[in-house]
Design a protein around this nucleic acid. Structure first.
Lengths: 212, 212
DNA sequence: CAGCCGTCTTGACGGTTGTCCAAATTATTG
DNA sequence: CAATAATTTGGACAACCGTCAAGACGGCTG
């Protein structure tokens, strides 16, 4: 409104405020990251704010200072989680110079994240299921799902491109396929099925050429 | 052990015991069915035994008479749920005399169950996610998953048979694909996306011929 | 230094949870 | 019918939950 009349003092004040906001937001992310630790360990149903606090360097009161609500905290967790996983395969996609290179790079990342970040993945599936009950989660979850679909689609189109072809199915179907396979492999892996990872890799290796 | 020496009285006693056991088990299933009602409404995380009891004709004490534990109750729910859903498409599979008939019958059932039994389906996805955290659920969940995979496989092989072909992919990949598509459609449907069901049907209709 | 402000701690609150149990009720047996 | 067992009830219990608020802490400004 009165922006043109803003004096130097006011400009300084505004700058200070945005700095505070940034600091505030950075702290929120710190707390969300700590919360993700416990959420990945226990799952949504069994995780309380006190447990989150105890497994972190913070006290349970801080969480209510930075988040209006438990849902608010978990929504922030979900949003933060998104940024971490959507670019997982991008480096492989941009650097691979052949179909084989892309396949092997993709499979390596796939196996690594399934084994090393299993807790985060199961949390994602947990929260996506929660979104079916809790409307507050839906927007973020649907958004992440779209991002993951796009991520898979980038891999598929690049793979097709390297073979001078075009993907044979829709982005939605392709994502559904990979997501379903990954979800199943994750469950088996968590159940100590040692064939879970190799079976997934075999399946994907066989599938890629038939799809593009 | 001493079965050959069993007298008439003992045989009667044994019969009475098995009768009691059957009655006991029938009651368990009654209770599990009542519990499924509330679980489908609220999800695993938010469902308490008292809530289950309040939404049913039973008191909360009865549940502890028939189940040792909350997990015991929910395991029984999951097992009972299995029987209800695994045969959903079997009639269509056995009666269809052409590919079109099978396709349309399958799609009709798919749309109907997605719209009318959405709460049970979201509960299934919820509990499958829970199995990634709670070892007690894993055995039953993996078993149900296998049954559902077999169910999809029966549809696919019949569809292929009616076209004198053979399914082009593995049972696991096929199940992953349909499960992923269904899960995504369910979430969108619950988020009041009116295109969720038609989009799913379009996708499946397009997919079936390319797979078999 | 005094005062203020953002940050954080701590303890308390009402309500809910799973579990247990003694008593009441119903069914079954002798 | 009496008595014994099976079933059901509903309240008590400790533990835990999310939320809140009063106050402590520490840095910054005037």
């Amino acid at each position: 409104m009165a922006r043109q009349a803003t004096g130097a003092a006011q400009r300084v004040a505004v700058a200070a405020e945005t700095l505070r906001d940034e600091k505030f937001n950075a702290r929120r992310i710190e707390l969300a990251e700590a919360a993700l630790e416990t959420l990945g360990e226990l799952g949504f149903a069994r995780t309380s704010l006190r447990e989150i606090a105890q497994n972190s360097a913070f006290t349970h009161g801080v969480f209510h200072y930075y988040f209006s609500d438990k849902l608010d905290l978990i929504c922030c967790c979900v949003r933060h989680y998104k940024a971490k996983c959507v670019t997982r395969y991008d480096e492989v996609v941009t650097t691979a110079r052949s179909r084989d290179e892309l396949t092997e790079g993709f499979l390596a990342k796939l196996a690594a994240t399934l084994e090393n970040e299993a807790r985060m993945h199961r949390l994602w599936y947990d929260l996506r299921s929660q979104a079916m009950f809790e409307p507050a989660f839906r927007k973020d979850v649907l958004e992440i799902d779209k991002s993951l679909e796009a991520m898979i689609w980038r891999i598929a189109t690049r793979y097709a491109e390297l073979g001078n072809k075009r993907p044979a199915s829709s982005p939605a179907a392709l994502y559904a396929l990979f997501d379903g396979l990954f979800q199943s492999a994750l469950l088996r892996h968590l159940a100590n099925d040692e064939k879970a990872v190799p079976d997934l890799l075999d399946e994907v290796r066989r599938l890629l050429p038939t799809i593009c």
